Amino acid sequence: MAGLCEGRVVIVTGAGRGLGRAHALAFAAEGAKVVVNDLGVGLDGLPGPESPAARVVREIEALGGEAVAHGGDVATPRGADSLVEAALDAYGRLDTLVNNAGFLRDRMLVNLDEDDWDAVVRVHLKGHFLPLRSAAAWWRTEAKAGRAVAARVVNTSSGAGLLGSVGQGNYSAAKAGILGLTLVAAAEMGPYGVQVNAIAPAARTRMTERTFAQTMAAPEDGGFDAMAPENVSPLVVWLGADASAGVTGRVFETEGGRITVMEGWRPGPTADHGARRTPAEAGETAVELLAEARAPLPVYGSR
């Protein structure tokens, strides 16, 4: 029986380890040809001693799949363009882009310097925008040439982007920006046959192991490992496949065996005075509306 992604060409960024590696292997298991991107850097974004992307390619090939490695920096225009070119050179097409690359430089806001802010926002947010722009340009050209496009983009946000996370102001801001980018891209690229969704995963990876060391350990009895990154990949593969037709502009939280459709910002209680209020009147109205509104969920790490 053919796999869910048989014949599709898939790019996964940050695919040398953790979630990205799990996604790349899962796509390959479903018949996709995979471009495995990884810059080979540490948690702080500095270069590492060897290429994890090549190792993942070897894993896929050992299982009978097809893959190529790409080591470019997707947060640069040249790196992002060359990533799409790698897919086209190797396989002649591109069907799915999974934006996953990222790293952490956690600090409380009063200790967060500009370099740490810029580095994290650059890799997470710019590292989503540039590959998406390059891929979208190719898909738009294909659509305008009259060729059918059934493209998929899966962006990677976080619970920190949905709710915020103490000590991660830079990361939370970048991940929230990815959600806005996802909504805009879904609206703009829909007419060209491109679906764009986002996930907010929770799993045990290099980025999370220090934060959740006590709660994310693998079970010792061989039972279900709820925090294994492989639990997230089935949803990503489905979103990246033809089978997800009609699903776009959505955000999914996923952890272990749980999947949640996030509903985002919606208007809550409202009041129209019909004229300009004084500051005191605006405050009275705000207090009345807050009494009717649902309390926000707590920021991660705030209690």
Rank of each mutant, 00 (worst) to 15 (best):
Glu114Met: 12
His128Gln: 14
Gly301Glu: 05
Gly193Tyr: 01
Val287Lys: 13
Glu114Lys: 10
Ser51Met: 12
Ser51Phe: 09
Val123Asp: 04
Ala241His: 08
Asp116Gly: 02
Tyr171Ala: 07
Asp225Tyr: 15
Val261Ala: 14
Asp221Tyr: 09
Val123Ala: 13
Ala186His: 07
Ala69Pro: 03
Leu290Phe: 14
Gly14Glu: 07
Ala136Gln: 02
Trp265His: 02
Val236Asp: 03
Ala87His: 07
Asp44Trp: 11
Glu220Asn: 04
Asp95Met: 03
Thr141Phe: 04
Ala200Asn: 03
Ala286Asp: 03
Thr156Leu: 01
Asp89Pro: 00
Arg55Ile: 02
Arg93Tyr: 01
Thr76Val: 11
Phe252Arg: 00
Ala53Asp: 01
Gly31Met: 02
Gly193Ile: 03
Asn231Tyr: 10
Gly92Gln: 06
Leu289Ile: 10
Leu46Phe: 12
Trp265Val: 15
His273Gly: 12
Val84Pro: 00
Ala202Leu: 14
Ala176Asp: 00
Leu109Val: 15
Asp115Thr: 15
Val34Phe: 04
Trp265Met: 13
Ala143Lys: 05
Ala176Gly: 14
Ala75Asp: 13
Arg58Ala: 08
Pro201Val: 03
Thr141Gln: 15
Arg58Thr: 01
Pro296Arg: 09
Ala200Pro: 05
Ala2Tyr: 06
Met189Leu: 15
Leu179His: 00
His273Ser: 15
Leu125Ile: 10
Gly190Glu: 01
Pro229Lys: 06
Asp118Tyr: 06
Gly268Thr: 07
Ala174Ser: 13
Asp225Glu: 13
Ala200Gln: 08
Cys5Leu: 06
Val154Thr: 05
Arg55Asp: 03
Met216Asn: 00
Glu50Ser: 15
Gly223Cys: 09
Ala185Asp: 08
Asn170Ser: 12
Arg93Glu: 07
Leu97Pro: 04
Gly167Arg: 08
Arg140Lys: 13
Ala185Val: 06
Leu43Phe: 03
Glu281Tyr: 10
Leu46Pro: 02
Glu85Trp: 03
Val123Tyr: 08
Val154Tyr: 00
Ser233Met: 07
Ala291Gln: 09
Leu289Lys: 08
Leu39Thr: 09
Gly246Trp: 00
Leu235Asp: 10
Ala75His: 11
Lys126Trp: 05
Pro49Arg: 09
Leu109Arg: 06
Ala151Gly: 00
Ala176Glu: 02
Ala203Cys: 10
Lys175Tyr: 12
Gly257Trp: 12
Leu104Gln: 11
Gln195Ser: 09
Phe252Met: 08
Thr278Met: 10
Ser51Tyr: 11
Ala101Ile: 04
Val35Ala: 04
Val10Cys: 06
Ser157Gly: 05
Gly20Tyr: 02
Ala24Gln: 04
Thr278Gly: 15
His273Cys: 05
Arg133His: 14
